[in-house]
Write a protein that binds this DNA or RNA. Sequence first.
DNA 1: TATTAGCTGCGACAATTGTCGCAAATTTTG
DNA 2: CAAAATTTGCGACAATTGTCGCAGCTAATA
Lengths: 135, 135
Amino acid sequence: MHQPTAPELEILKLLWLKQPLTARELHDELAPVLGWGYSSTRKTLERMGAKGFIACSIHCNKNTYTALLDKMPTLAAYVQDFANRVFEINGPLPVAMFANSKLVNASEIADLELLLQKLAQESAADPQAAASKDN
Amino acid sequence: MHQPTAPELEILKLLWLKQPLTARELHDELAPVLGWGYSSTRKTLERMGAKGFIACSIHCNKNTYTALLDKMPTLAAYVQDFANRVFEINGPLPVAMFANSKLVNASEIADLELLLQKLAQESAADPQAAASKDN
DNA sequence: TATTAGCTGCGACAATTGTCGCAAATTTTG
DNA sequence: CAAAATTTGCGACAATTGTCGCAGCTAATA
């Protein structure tokens, strides 16, 4: 299973802020940024559902979406992948870089640090499996 | 212009180490890592040429490839994109994270810091000019 | 020089992603 | 309740990427 694509990540970020949301609500937030038509938003949601990134359920007679991916593990996977793939860093990653993020607070950064240590250990212990796990 | 894809970046990294290289030389390094057939390597090179990432020229009666993208600006673009897209960081980015990289040395990290400052300034001065010019 | 081994250009095919459009079902409203 | 506005489920199409295969050309060699 790969990582969410860029637009998929945007949707997840909205859901991590507030859940559940309808397609229309998500679209109204996304449209200005991505310049999408409503159909594009819905199709992306459909595909995310098929991939197990989000779940669709009925609330108040409407389809609403909730994230199935947890925020920090998902972000940690991005960081790990990026550091490995682009910079070939394999040891534990410093998290100072993320202090300025609008997306995560101090406690989440602490979580991130733990998650990254775990990921680094895994890929050190078993490089092949760790590398191909998300591929 | 998009960023190089993951395999394309691997090729660029090899070229940044040593240039020029033939398709065969690149392939022999990449095959174990990517599990590619020779044709896949060559097709990827062809596409990278079409995108202007690399140039193909004749040395010793053989097609050889050289990178047209510079290493540090390319890496800086990755960092900037990643920080913005995934973590919504817009201020200047700390580069401490990259100290452990096998790919860059101290002086290159210094370059990176400058490049990132520049990118951050640009995107601060001109946030999404193309998308929303009516505000 | 006739083979042969490797290189080149290109075409091809499947999977993914970006991006709709449409017709049917449902909900809202006059 | 009937008409209008939304919502939904799906199908579609183009561009990109991963990944070859093939037929022809070239260079090395017996």
